[in-house]
Amino acid sequence: MSTQQHNGQAAPAQPAAAHMPAPAGTVPPAGAGAGQQPGQGQPGQGHWPGGIAPYSSPIPMARTNLGHALVSEWTKIRTVRSTVWTLGVMFALVVGIGLLSAVGLSGDFTGMPLLSSGLFGLMLGQICVITLGVLVVTSEYGTGMIRTTLTACPQRGRVLLAKATVFFLLAFVMTTLACALTALINSALLSDQTLPSYERGSELADSFEGGKLVASGSEWLGATVGAGLYVALLGLLSLAVGALLRHSAGAITTMMGVVLLPLLMAMFMAGKALQDVRDFLIEYSPLNGLASLYRIPMTTDQDATGWPLLGGLAVVTLIVFAAAYALLNKRDV
């Protein structure tokens, strides 16, 4: 894309020999009508003042497409410190807390599925991904960079799509890597457990094979790719919210509310009358989706896998994205 050969000319610094300055004789006589210069026809008819030909650049130009926008956005995201910081901290939180909890829990019977303790680190780590998702868009508004971006690529939908794609892939890969590493740590440190006699009939008993706690294929999938997808989607939702609000603090606060509020509100809803509301809030809380992927759902439905909630999150993200796209095309920048 950006590899076309430059034909070796130092472009604008080279005076084109053919371009002579207009002879002094063409000075418009006083009293000529405003806006019309002598010796010049109607606009667009190819008559140029003083016989100067329109400039044409020696630099090879390509008709721009989504590929250009993707490369450009990749350069942008990897050349700011906030990316390194947020993803670095996310990685440290997920793997660090995963390691600490695995070390702390090892030796005893945990009473949880093998990979589930990875959730604790990721609950904090997702905040970093949310922050990065918001900043990908709002930092451009905050600095005025958005004007440069949209001048270079006036197709605003293309810019949004390129930003979303690049961010989503990066967030997904990084989160999945961190989660996979944590899952490996958990599996290495926590599989040596003995099932106590009082747990014989429980569901957890099915996860014991040959005296060791194991995780099924779908548990592995949920705790790595599933968790990675979920958090990357949450980041994508943040990016769309950022594009809607165009303000870093506002968008991050909104996303914190989306993630934490349902559960916090549910905690204060005691009493029978609110039972249904509370159950609803807990079930559809974003945190419950993540917990379900780790097989420790917060509801009584112990079979929840988290994938339906992940699908729901994808639908919500798509809707907010459509709104962001519509507004981006409508608003002045």
Binding site: M1, S2, T3, Q4, Q5, H6, I59, P60, M61, A62, R63, T64, H68, A69, V71, S72, T75, T148, T149, A152, C153
Partner: peptide
């Protein structure tokens, strides 16, 4: 900026 317009 250059990349977004395919400029070398």
């Amino acid at each position: 900026m250059a990349q977004s317009n395919g400029i070398p």
